[in-house]
C-alpha cells in the first residue's frame, strides 16, 4: 500500500467536494491555485477610527512582505519561498503554493499614510490604517430647546 493514499485521499476528496458546495464563487477561484496563482484570503473591517485588514500569509518571512499605500489603495505583495530543500525527496503532495502574490484593496475613505501599522503573527498579516480626521465620523451636539 502506498502511504498517504487510500482512504486519506478518499476523505480528502469528500472534504474537497464539501468545500466546493459551501464555497462562494470567489472562494472557488481561490481554491484552484493552478489557474490563478496564489490569492491569499483577505478580510477588511471598518471601525470608527480605522480600517483593519487581515491577510492569511502562512509560512512567510516578514522581510518578504511588502505593504504599500498609493492614492487610497493598499497593496500587499510578496513572495513565498520554499523554505526547505527537498531535491532528493519524493513528493507525495504539493498543495502549497510558492511564488509571488499581490492583492490590492481600495479604501472607501482617506487614511493617514504615516500612521499605517502592519504586524505579522501566526501567519496572518494585520494592517491597521487610521482614518484621516476628515474621514472620521463626527458627532454634532444639537442643543434641544
Amino acid at each position: 500500500m502506498t502511504p498517504w493514499s487510500s482512504f486519506g485521499r478518499l476523505s480528502d476528496l469528500r472534504e474537497e467536494i464539501d468545500r466546493l458546495f459551501d464555497a462562494p464563487l470567489n472562494e472557488l477561484a481561490r481554491t484552484s491555485n493552478l489557474l490563478s496563482g496564489w490569492t491569499p484570503a483577505l478580510d477588511v473591517y471598518e471601525q470608527k477610527d480605522n480600517f483593519v485588514i487581515k491577510v492569511e500569509l502562512p509560512g512567510m518571512s516578514k522581510e518578504d512582505i511588502t505593504v504599500s499605500l498609493h492614492e487610497g489603495s493598499l497593496s500587499i505583495s510578496g513572495e513565498r519561498k520554499s523554505g526547505t530543500k527537498h531535491t532528493e525527496a519524493e513528493v507525495y503532495r504539493a498543495e502549497r503554493f510558492f511564488g509571488r502574490f499581490q492583492r490590492t484593496v481600495t479604501l472607501p475613505a482617506p487614511v493617514a499614510p504615516d500612521k499605517v501599522k502592519a504586524q505579522y503573527k501566526d501567519g496572518i498579516l494585520t494592517v491597521t490604517l487610521p482614518k484621516t480626521e476628515e474621514a472620521k465620523p463626527k458627532q454634532i451636539d444639537v442643543s434641544v430647546s
Partner: peptide
C-alpha cells in the same frame, strides 16, 4: 505538502492563525 526522504517523511500544513 508531503515529502519522503531516505530518513523519513516531512509534512507541512498551512494553518494561518
Amino acid at each position: 505538502n508531503i515529502y519522503e526522504t531516505l530518513e523519513g517523511y516531512v509534512l507541512e500544513a498551512e494553518m494561518p492563525g
